[in-house]
């Protein structure tokens, strides 16, 4: 899972697999973090809450 483990090999298979996996994870995590940060900002009044 991480380059610390001996199973880790720098080959195409691993790059594709973990590349896609970590990309997906990063996207999801980033979105959530963005939502969280936005919330924090709005709560503390840094930005105005937009209404739709």
């Amino acid at each position: 899972m991480l380059p610390f483990c001996f199973e880790w090999v720098w080959n195409v298979d691993h790059i594709i697999f973990f590349g896609l996996l970590y990309t997906a994870l990063t996207i999801v995590a980033t979105c959530v973090v963005i939502a969280a940060i936005k919330t924090v900002m709005q709560v503390f009044g840094f930005t105005r809450q937009r209404h739709f």
């Binding site: 996207i27 979105c31 959530v32 939502a35 969280a36 936005k38 919330t39 709005q42 809450q49």
Partner: peptide, 14 residues
Amino acid sequence: HIFGHNLHHIMGVI
């Protein structure tokens, strides 16, 4: 409420 709202925004990507 705000958090929920913000989450709704990212729902497409999620």
